[in-house]
Write a protein that binds this DNA or RNA. Structure first.
Lengths: 139, 139
DNA sequence: CTTCCAAATTAGAATCCTTACGATTTAACA
DNA sequence: TGTTAAATCGTAAGGATTCTAATTTGGAAG
C-alpha cells in the first residue's frame, strides 16, 4: 500500500523529467517510512549518515521539488517548515498534528463545507484547518 | 469604539506593571488605526519615521509583550509573524485573511464545534482555522 | 560501452527573520 | 528632584532558508 505510493513517487520523477538520484530515492523512502511531518534539518541529519557531506541546498531544493510534484505536503509549525508524504486517501481532508512526534491523524470534517458565512466578493485561494496536541503514543 | 480598546490596552500596561512609553503607545495606536495583520518590519518602518534609530529589539519585545497581555494576536503567514489588534467581539471566532493587505473578516463558524470525529485519547492543545484570499477592496 | 549535456549536487556565502547581550536611557514612584 | 527597575539602543548572534559558481553525475544518444 505505502510502497505503491513510494514507487509511484519515484516513477513520477522520471515521468516529469527529473533525474532519479540516490539522494532523492532515499529522501522519499525516509518520508514513506516515517509517515509524519519532518523538518529539513531532521531529513538532513538522517540522510547525512549515508551521504556524508550532503548539502543544505540539496535538501531544500528537493523538498521544494517534491511539494510542487504533489509528492509531499508542507505546513509551518513554530516557525519551521515541516513536510510529510502526501496522504493517499484520495479525498480532501485535514489533520490532527502531534506536536511531539509530528505524526498525524486525518480529520474528515472540512469547515469549508459547513461554512454558513456569506463570503461573496471575497476571492478565496485557500484555507487551513489544523488541530494541535499530543497523540496517545506521546502522552 | 475602537478608541475604547486602544485606551484599555494602554491602561492595561499600567495595570500589569508595565511602563507606558511613547513607543508602546505609538505601536498600539498603529495597530488600532490599521486594524489588520502587520509584520514586525512594517511596524518598524512606520515607527522609524517618528522614532529614528528605533531598535529591532524594542519592536519584537513589545510585540511579544502585547501578545502575552492578549492585546495583540499573532499568526504566521509565509514564514513571517503577523500581528493584529485582538478582536473585541468577545467570542471565539476565526478569520478570513487578505493576503494582499492583511485585513481580516470574522468567520463565526468554528470547525471544532461541528467536529464529528472521535478524538478521545488525543490531548488537544489548540487549533487553527484560517481562510486565505483577496478581499473585495484588493481585487 | 563511451560520450555528452543538462540536471543535480556541493561548499560556502548571503539573506531574512528573530532573539540575545551589555551599556545607556527613561518612566514612575517616593 | 533622586532613585531604581524597566525599557531602549546598538549591535551581534542565532537559526532557517536561499543563492551562486564550480563540480559531479544520471541517463539518453550514438
Amino acid at each position: 500500500m505505502k510502497d505503491v505510493n513510494l514507487e509511484e513517487a519515484i516513477g513520477l520523477l522520471k515521468t516529469e523529467g527529473y533525474k532519479q538520484t540516490g539522494k532523492r530515492k532515499m529522501m522519499l523512502e525516509l518520508f514513506d517510512r516515517h509517515d509524519r511531518y519532518m523538518t529539513a534539518k531532521e531529513v538532513l541529519e538522517e540522510m547525512s549518515r549515508e551521504f556524508k557531506g550532503l548539502s543544505f541546498d540539496t535538501i531544500y531544493r528537493n523538498l521544494s521539488t517534491f511539494v510542487s510534484l504533489n509528492i509531499l505536503e508542507e505546513t509551518e509549525l513554530s516557525g519551521e517548515k515541516h513536510f510529510r508524504f502526501v496522504c493517499d486517501s484520495g479525498h480532501h481532508h485535514h489533520h490532527f498534528i502531534c506536536l511531539d512526534c509530528g505524526k498525524t491523524r486525518q480529520i474528515h470534517t472540512c469547515p469549508m463545507s459547513a461554512l454558513n458565512e456569506n463570503l461573496s466578493g471575497y476571492d478565496i485561494s485557500g484555507h487551513k484547518f489544523e488541530i494541535y496536541g499530543t497523540c496517545p503514543a506521546c502522552q
